[in-house]
Amino acid sequence: MTDFYNKLSQISEASYNPDVKAWRFRVKIHRVYPLYSSVTNRVMPFYSYVLADEDGCKMEMTVYGDYESFRGFENREGEWVEIFRVGVERSCVGFNATNSRFRLTASRLTQVRMIDPLNNRLFMDFKNIHAISHMSHKERNYSIDTIGVVFNTEARFDDPARPRMIFYIRDNIDSQIKCVATGKQAYAFRDGLENVEGGQVIVALKMWKVCKSWNLFEAPDLWLQTEGGLSDFRFNPRLTEVEDFRQSLLNSDPYVQKYGIEGFT
């Protein structure tokens, strides 16, 4: 077998050829989420993977069948894999997990196997809270990562069919944004927050959707919301960006200076 690998970042309009079905990549599984049937509203045995190569370039891959070679990999987030005999096609218009113009498509011939880790990067590309309001319409078609300190929460579980956990996060320059966790993630956020004791809590949001609604007489509303099984969150994760954010809060936030902030767990 050859040691040659393609790079996700190398796929462009110039290099793309729909007749080529044997691309080979060495990537980290950044996120895995199930696909739902719009007819039966049930989870199908199909998954979408968000992959990142060693340069940090991200791309989505869809597995449209219950292929034996992929069984068990839906539980392998954070692992490095080699994927070969995989196809490439243009991504569809609409909300996407990444801002790549292309996506990978696995078939029954596609092979995937675990490989040794290349590095410890998580490939989270944090967007500052104050920059979210300036995102273009096109940018809002893709999921984002962000980080902030939780300062207010509101649980809404009266309707079992539509549970919501509403919370607000802010950065170290007093910009803030509303966040809405829905479905199973609403319960997960509530339970996770209850298990964190003392001080203010830093939360890292992973692949959340930016939502915007227009009001005729007021400024438009802007908030972040979970997108099915795609979105995730972490309380006080062990990331360099989180520690830097924590230190900036300690230096600039009067409340945190007085009461402290929850450390790593």
Rank of each mutant, 00 (worst) to 15 (best):
K209G: 00
P34F: 03
G199Y: 11
E13F: 02
G72I: 09
R26C: 07
F4G: 00
L249Y: 14
L51F: 12
A97I: 13
R162A: 12
Y49Q: 04
M44Q: 14
L109Y: 14
S175A: 14
E79A: 12
K7N: 14
V196G: 03
D116G: 04
R24M: 02
R170E: 15
L250M: 15
N75K: 09
E74Q: 15
V256R: 09
V27I: 13
N41C: 04
H130K: 11
V201T: 13
V201R: 11
S48G: 10
Y187K: 09
D221P: 02
V27S: 09
A186N: 09
K7E: 14
W208G: 08
F102D: 00
Y168H: 12
V242Y: 10
A106N: 03
Y187Q: 11
W214S: 13
F189D: 11
R140G: 01
N251T: 05
Y47P: 01
F233G: 10
K21P: 00
A106F: 04
L216A: 15
D145A: 05
E60D: 15
F4S: 07
A22F: 05
S12H: 13
R238M: 09
K178P: 07
A106V: 05
D159A: 12
N251V: 06
G263R: 13
N41A: 06
E82M: 05
T110A: 01
G183E: 03
E194S: 02
S91Y: 00
D244T: 06
E243N: 04
L51H: 02
T153M: 11
V203L: 12
L8K: 05
V180D: 04
D19V: 07
R26V: 05
S248H: 03
T153L: 03
V201S: 11
L205F: 14
N215F: 05
V81S: 08
G87A: 09
N128S: 08
Q176L: 06
I147H: 01
R162S: 12
G72N: 09
R31C: 06
T98H: 00
D171C: 03
T105H: 07
